[in-house]
Design a protein around this nucleic acid. Sequence first.
DNA 1: CCCTGATTCGC
DNA 2: GCGAATCAGG
Length: 178
Amino acid sequence: MSWTDERVEMLRKLWNDGLSASQVAAEIGAGITRNAVIGKIHRLGLAQRAKTPLAARPRVAKPQRPQAPPARVHHGHAPAVIGNVALALAPRALVMPDARPQEEVVIPMSERVTLMELRESMCRWPIGDPTSPEFRFCGAKSPGGGGPYCGYHSQIAYQPVQDRRRARDQLRSAARLA
DNA sequence: CCCTGATTCGC
DNA sequence: GCGAATCAGG
């Protein structure tokens, strides 16, 4: 493994996009470590990032819980069920005609994680088409090292079927009144 | 304990 | 040039 032109180019791009050294390393893969990335960045004289887009950003308050849960957080994995749960969590937002999936807005792709970036402590909820290079995992911190999902996706994953059905029925009757 | 980038120094 | 080990910090 070495710093091919291709990898250097990737490094420049990702680093300037504001990804951290470990994120860049995971993205490049090929056995490139965080230290390798940092070392290379210094040798290339990129140590001072153009504007530190991610670092300067006000730490994006708790991305786990979107204000309006996405109607379809992902696709290919029982989207109908997820739709129901989202409705149960935030009926108003989703009943509104202009409500639409906010995945890209609420949690930037750069905060999702690839398989290589996935850690033991991270949420394993799949996002996107597993056969696509865009495929990511949620990656949010899962609580207390307990389950495989973050709080938000645990709700989705484990909410009993009855609860989903009840939530859906409540919504329907609410819509009928409106 | 999780993570960040910076630095050193043997290879 | 390379990057593991280490450091200092959040």
